[in-house]
Design a binder for these strands. Structure first.
Length: 282
DNA sequence: AGGTTCGCCTGCGGGC
DNA sequence: TGCCCGCAGGCGAACC
């Protein structure tokens, strides 16, 4: 399940093999992802050059001279390179044939991901293509990146003001901050000592300082660890390197808390499994 | 209008 | 063993 660290790891991994290379062809075997892949996309991207890549939240943008190919990995998606003629398996939905002889392959068993297009040809001259994709409907109202200065305790404190929503649901809301999925929300709240069910508006500035710090730490640690396995999947074995993250609470309901040995509890919040220590998290 | 639930999918694990 | 069912999850859309 790609969360922000996996998406960043993927983006960094494919970047050197894509940047500056031309798309010779695009093959769609299964267009039915979360939204259908635009039927005309292969015609549209044929002959375009991937000038640069960027990531916004869990979206990856492949910027070309005419616009941006937007890729989301959903729950089970991955992007990696295969050699010419590598036979596609059942869930290998899309290939991009590149001028450097490599093929970029998109695999997504559960098809929660997406491949879309943002056309930049009608933008005003000043707006660079790199920036223009953020005007896309899916990206326009996203909150700040968690690892930038824009995401800080003061920001989150002000956003949470008067909110009755549970803090866990709140930090998983991409309008508040992007890239905090279920695993890291659970982990960050545990490390912060904040109870996941606590109303966001009742958390004080001091606690938000701790929480923001923990979110940044958990995410950047995961990116670091993801980075160590980069070459494994760029080499083309078809599996992104899922880093080994030591999880304190996620998936450990019923087990003892690593801090106080109380039995970890599980609940549902917004349909998501929520695990916490009822004595460490207040 | 803020907040909650739904629905898209397949793989997997538990129960029998 | 094999089948069936329930659950898992990102996140926009639909709903209340």
């Amino acid at each position: 399940m790609p969360e922000l660290p996996e998406v960043e790891t993927t983006k960094r991994g494919i970047e050197p093999h894509l940047k500056g290379h031309k798309i010779i062809s695009m093959v769609i075997r299964q267009p039915k992802l979360r939204w259908p892949i635009p039927t005309n996309l292969p015609d549209l991207v044929k002959g375009l050059t991937v000038l640069s890549l960027s990531r916004r939240g869990k979206y990856i943008g492949l910027h070309t001279e005419k616009g941006t190919i937007i890729v989301h990995l959903g729950m089970s998606g991955s992007l990696y390179f295969v050699g010419e003629g590598t036979p596609p398996l059942f869930h290998d939905h899309v290939d991009f044939q590149l001028s450097n002889g490599k093929w970029l392959r998109y695999t997504d068993p559960r098809r929660f991901g997406a491949i879309l297009w943002h056309d930049a040809s009608s933008e005003e001259k000043n707006a660079s293509i790199k920036d223009s994709w953020q005007q896309h409907t899916l990206l326009a109202s996203l909150g700040p990146e968690p690892l930038t200065m824009d995401f800080n305790a003061n920001y989150l404190f002000l956003k949470a003001k008067n909110k009755k929503q549970a803090i866990k649901t709140f930090i998983m809301d991409s309008k508040q901050v992007v890239g905090v999925g279920n695993i890291y929300a659970n982990e960050a709240l545990f490390l912060s000592g904040i109870h996941p069910h606590k109303a966001a508006g009742t958390i004080n500035a001091e606690q938000f300082t701790v929480l923001v710090d923990c979110i940044k730490k958990v995410l950047s640690k995961a990116i670091e660890q993801g980075g160590t396995t980069l070459k494994d999947f760029v080499g083309g074995d078809g599996k992104p390197g899922y880093f080994k993250q030591s999880l304190n609470v996620y998936g450990r309901a019923g087990d003892p808390c690593v801090t106080c040995s109380s039995i970890l509890e599980e609940s549902r919040l917004g349909q998501r499994s929520t695990v916490f220590c009822n004595s460490c998290q207040k």
